[in-house]
């Protein structure tokens, strides 16, 4: 286990160390003090534990690595992530997992607006609530919400899935409730399992996705 301390090292030095490390290394990062772009662009199978809250784009474009943030995260957590996983013990700001292609994000607290915007295959699990416009234009992957969702959930959604246990303030354009089949219960169980979670009452989750009515341009769609 290596310790990297922001009191002694710059962002560039810390990221360079993480990006250039050997697979299976472990790091603890101290005193992040809301630093931006921390642990961005890692392409190694390493474990990173951050002791404290981080700023924008933590673990941006992450590939393979496993990152735990013991605190909260600013906007764009794990944006465009390709694989690996991120675990946040606190809350996350806007655009968590934006355009993520793969891997998974677990947030123990709440997520602000546009969580999972434009997601392209990532799985995101939010133990609390999510803000408005979450899963906006979500293309692929899954957003699991244990709490409630703000307005316009899943607006203009494509082939992504949303599972939610709480209330939905309103649905966005083209997003509809869909049947929760046995297949989907298994899918949800697997996603939770990948995030090291279990839940005995998956039956309370509802599923939402695209009605696919906006998939091809029609003049009546333009009036929405």
């Amino acid at each position: 286990m290596h310790t990297l301390d922001f009191k002694k090292l710059s962002l560039r030095e810390i990221n360079k160390t993480l990006q250039g490390s050997d697979n299976n290394s472990s790091f603890t990062i101290k005193n992040p003090k809301g630093s931006h772009a921390l642990a961005a662009g890692i392409n190694k199978k390493i474990d990173v534990k951050v002791l404290g809250s981080v700023g924008y784009y933590c673990a941006g474009m992450n590939k393979k690595s496993s990152i735990k943030i013991e605190g909260s995260a600013g906007p764009g957590l794990g944006e465009n992530m390709m694989s690996g996983n991120i675990h946040v013990t606190g809350d996350v700001s806007q655009y968590a997992g934006a355009s993520g292609h793969g891997g998974n994000i677990l947030v123990e607290g709440n997520a602000s607006s546009r969580c999972g915007i434009s997601m392209k295959g990532i799985d995101i699990v939010i133990k609390g609530n999510v803000g408005h416009m979450s899963a906006f234009m979500a293309q692929k992957g899954t957003l699991v919400i244990f709490g409630d969702a703000g307005h316009a959930l899943g607006d203009s959604i494509y082939e992504a899935n949303i599972y939610i246990a709480g209330k939905v303030s309103s649905l966005g354009a083209d997003c509809v409730e869909k049947k929760m089949t046995k297949k989907h219960i298994i899918n949800l169980k697997n996603i939770l399992s990948n995030a090291n979670l279990t839940d005995d009452n998956l039956g309370r989750f509802k599923r939402f996705g695209s009605s696919r009515s906006l998939y091809n341009f029609k003049v009546d769609n333009a009036k929405i």
């Binding site: 990221n15 990006q19 931006h36 772009a37 961005a40 784009y57 941006g60 474009m61 764009g76």
Partner: peptide, 12 residues
């Protein structure tokens, strides 16, 4: 900040 992130990912 986005530019900072891109620079960090590509090592400046």
């Amino acid at each position: 900040i986005k530019i900072l992130e891109l620079r960090e990912i590509t090592g400046w």
